[in-house]
Structures are given as structure tokens and as C-alpha cells.
């Protein structure tokens, strides 16, 4: 299906069209992306993906906004406390960019529904705060051969992994067994901001074919000494999730 850009869209996206051209902007317009978790990471990645003109964003999160979220979950304001995150997020993103479609779903990803959610989109963004759901999504993305953009944060520290099935390691290659879950973790608000921005950047690169996605690299951000390190990571030949593809 071919899409055209309206005059308003050409103006709105003019500065990035100067960078990667109209065809890339049309690819963004055609794209469907799911952001699972609109907390610290998802607040930021969704804002920039909406601003960039990704045609359809699906937001999935079952939580309501709490006062203690507001040091980092920058989509929300004090008056939003108590409301469902996806409802406020969808409204904010539509206000930012009415040219795109945004669907907010109060739900959580499980083994039972993951197939349906992943089948609706071209790419999956990890905004989660637990390993169990990340592993479910990683596995389904490998099965459906869809990119999965992982990030995780704690304190002033975070990691990013771009999973392109068959082309580089998956989350399971790097973390072979489910780590222990941590409920309330310390975090400086800027940390998910930085990692969420890196995720959005990788999403836009993948969808537009502009630049080189960070495949086979574990990116480690450490705000304590302000370092951004790139560690070469390989697929595990015996990975139970992606070893067969």
C-alpha cells in the first residue's frame, strides 16, 4: 500500500525529511509500532516516535499513574495521578501529533495474548520493568521475525539491545535464564530518558532504513562516570529461543 504525505506532514517533518528524504518519511507513516509499558522508558520513546510520525502506535500498560512515577514518566502531570497511563499517554501523543493514530490498551502481555499483539505491528519496543514479560516478547518477536528493541534501567545505569531476529543475538542469548525480579528500584529520571531516546532512535533507523541499527552490540550507559560503551555480543548457537533460525 502506497501512502502520500500531506502538505501539513511535509511541513511538520520537514527537518527530518531534509535528513533522510520523503520515502523514509512515508515508511514511518506506514509503520505500526507497539510500546509495551509506558513508564520511564515508554514515556520518552513514545513521545519521540509520535513526533517523528510513526503512523500507528499501540501502547499497552495496565498500571495507573502514581505520584512516585512523576520523577521520570514525563508524559504525565500531577493532575493525572490515579488515571490509566495508556489513556493519558494516548491523549498526550495525539495532542503532540494529530496526524498519527494512537491506541492505548489497558492490558498486560502474557503467553496467551502476545501472539496477537506482535502480529499487529512491524516492531516491538520494550518499556517494561520485569524480565518475565520481556522474555515472552523476545521469544514471540523471534518467532514472528519482528525487531525487538530492549532497554532496562536502574539508578544511573542502563542497557540497550537491538534484537533483529536471525541477524544478531536475542535477549536470551545475552541473559540465558530469568534474572530475579526487583520490585521498587532506585532511578534518576534522566536514565530512562536517555535509554528511551536511544530506543526511539534505533526504531526510526530500522523503520526508515537510515543508518545502521546497533545489531550485535550491547550498549551500556553509566551516568555515574558518563560513559556509553559498546560491547560486541554474539548469538549463542545453542540459544533455545533463536538458535534454530
Amino acid at each position: 500500500m502506497s501512502v502520500e504525505l500531506t502538505e501539513k506532514e511535509l511541513e511538520r517533518y520537514g527537518r527530518q525529511i531534509m535528513l533522510f528524504g520523503e520515502e523514509s518519511q512515508k515508511r514511518l507513516k506506514k509503520a505500526r509500532v507497539i510500546i509495551v509499558g509506558v513508564g520511564g522508558l515508554g514515556s520518552v520513546s513514545s513521545l519521540y516516535l509520535a513526533a517523528a510520525g510513526v503512523g500507528k502506535l499501540i501502547l499497552v500498560d495496565k498500571e495507573r499513574i502514581e505520584l512516585s512515577n512523576l520523577n521520570r514518566q514525563i508524559l504525565y502531570t500531577t493532575k493525572d495521578v490515579g488515571k490509566y497511563k495508556v489513556e493519558v499517554a494516548a491523549r498526550r501523543l495525539k495532542e503532540l501529533n494529530p496526524e498519527i493514530e494512537v491506541e492505548g490498551v489497558v492490558d498486560e502481555i502474557t503467553e496467551d495474548n502476545v501472539k496477537d499483539y506482535v502480529s499487529k505491528v512491524d516492531l516491538v519496543v520494550d518499556g517494561l520493568d520485569n524480565w518475565k514479560t520481556r522474555f515472552i516478547l523476545n521469544k514471540e518477536c523471534i518467532r514472528q521475525k519482528k525487531p525487538f528493541i530492549h532497554a532496562g534501567i536502574r539508578g544511573m545505569y542502563g542497557q540497550l539491545l537491538v534484537v533483529i531476529p536471525g541477524k544478531g543475538p536475542c535477549l536470551n542469548c545475552i541473559i540465558p535464564s530469568l534474572p530475579e525480579e526487583e520490585k521498587a528500584f532506585p532511578v534518576l529520571g534522566t536514565t530512562p530518558g536517555i535509554l528511551g531516546l536511544l530506543q526511539a532512535t534505533e526504531v526510526i533507523k530500522i523503520l526508515t532504513n537510515y543508518g545502521t541499527p546497533a545489531i550485535g552490540k550491547l550498549i551500556i550507559y553509566d551516568g555515574m562516570d558518563l560513559s556509553l560503551r559498546e560491547i560486541k555480543v554474539n548469538r549463542r548457537p545453542n540459544c533455545p529461543v533463536c538458535g534454530g533460525i
Binding site: G37, G39, G40, L41, G42, D126, G127, L128, D129, N130, W131, A151, G152, I153, R154, G155, Y157, G158, Q159, I174, I175, P176, P179, E181, E182, F185, V187, P192, L218, I220, I231, K232, V233, N234, R236
Partner: peptide
């Protein structure tokens, strides 16, 4: 380069232990 828990580390190697963060 990332190694698995079964891999061996030898004299002269430089090893980094990198925690993985779960928060979002």
C-alpha cells in the same frame, strides 16, 4: 566479547562484570 557462564577465563584476560538492569 560476551562469554557464557561455562566459558573459561585465562591468565592475561581482562574481564568485565556487567549487571543487567530490569527497570523501565
Amino acid at each position: 566479547e560476551v562469554i557464557t557462564e561455562d566459558d573459561e577465563i585465562y591468565d592475561g584476560d581482562f574481564v568485565e562484570i556487567i549487571p543487567v538492569a530490569s527497570g523501565g
